[in-house]
Amino acid sequence: MSHPLYQLIRCRIKTFFREPEAIFWTYGFPLIMVFGLGIAFRNKPAEIITFDVVQSSGGQRVAEMAKNQSIIVPHLRSVEEANERLRKNKTPVVLEVLADGSYCYHFDPANPDALRAKLLIDDTLQRAAGRRDTVPTSIQQVTAPGSRYVDWLVPGLIGMNLMGSGMWGIGFNLVDMRVRNLLKRLLATPMKRSHFLASMIGTRVMFFAPELTVLLMFAWLLFGVPIRGSLFSLILMTFLGAVTFAGLGLLTACRAKRIETVSGLMNLIMLPMWLMSGIFFSAERFPDFIQPFVQALPLTQINNALRAIMLDGATLASQWLAILILVGWSVLSFTLALRWFRWN
């Protein structure tokens, strides 16, 4: 007869793949996030500023001049109409050419968009009128793959996925089995407890491989998200993340007797990491005094390390601190979980 560990793992895999919702949340959802956020925050083409100019002969001249400029589009309107539109924020700026030929800009300086528009419009018109820069300037464009938002986002989503499916995959299933009296039933057999726990953790960690592959392939095909570091480092780091969150999942579920209890605990543990661990925006943005807490969170360390490896081509050795923190979390959570584990 086949080995119990093999049977336990086989059963876990089968139940997983017979659960369409679980497959969606594990594999489908992160892809939708990459797609949606990648599109939403893609680099926009150079901005065009539309604005109102008060109808007058001077206004006509400005409109003529702006014709050859691609980034500003003036519309000639009556004073009343232009001022009305300014009040309703339909135009950022109203330009009035005064009798002496000077330009008067009407706008709210407290509105950064209006200020930016005014500066751009004025700069463009002054150049068109023949102004020369006293110091020559040049521009270096940086929109290469690897520095866009979507590049920054993908490692964070991998981290988030490791956390979500690790904690839910283990926590939910364990408590479900406890509620069903199945843990006790298994205990009544000669099954080794270590085999059972190994199968829970093992299956979870096994699932990370297809998860990672699907996400990386998708991000690469759709947005050209690069992997600059070695694939080996990336896999090892992800593996460590999967183990860490499997341990946290086990700890969260080690005593809970009801699904509601474990759901609450899960959310309690995951919420700070969702907010602070730098999935959607950098964890550095939090004030200094909570940085020690933010940096101690396992998800922060995984996200940072994955970003360093994928985007900066960092080596595994350079991530020693992240690795140390994650190993610490794993050891702590497994030790406590095994000590406190409730079988019935």
């Binding site: 007869m1 080995h3 659960e19 006790k184 039933r185 009544a188």
Partner: peptide, 27 residues
């Protein structure tokens, strides 16, 4: 020993034979 416990609900998403193969593997 063999047993049925009161109010045990076996895993819904396994087949009958898979469930038995699992239990058999422990003995």
């Amino acid at each position: 020993l063999g047993s049925t416990l009161q109010e045990t609900r076996l895993q819904d998403k396994l087949t009958v034979i898979e469930t038995l193969q699992l239990f058999r593997s422990f003995y």
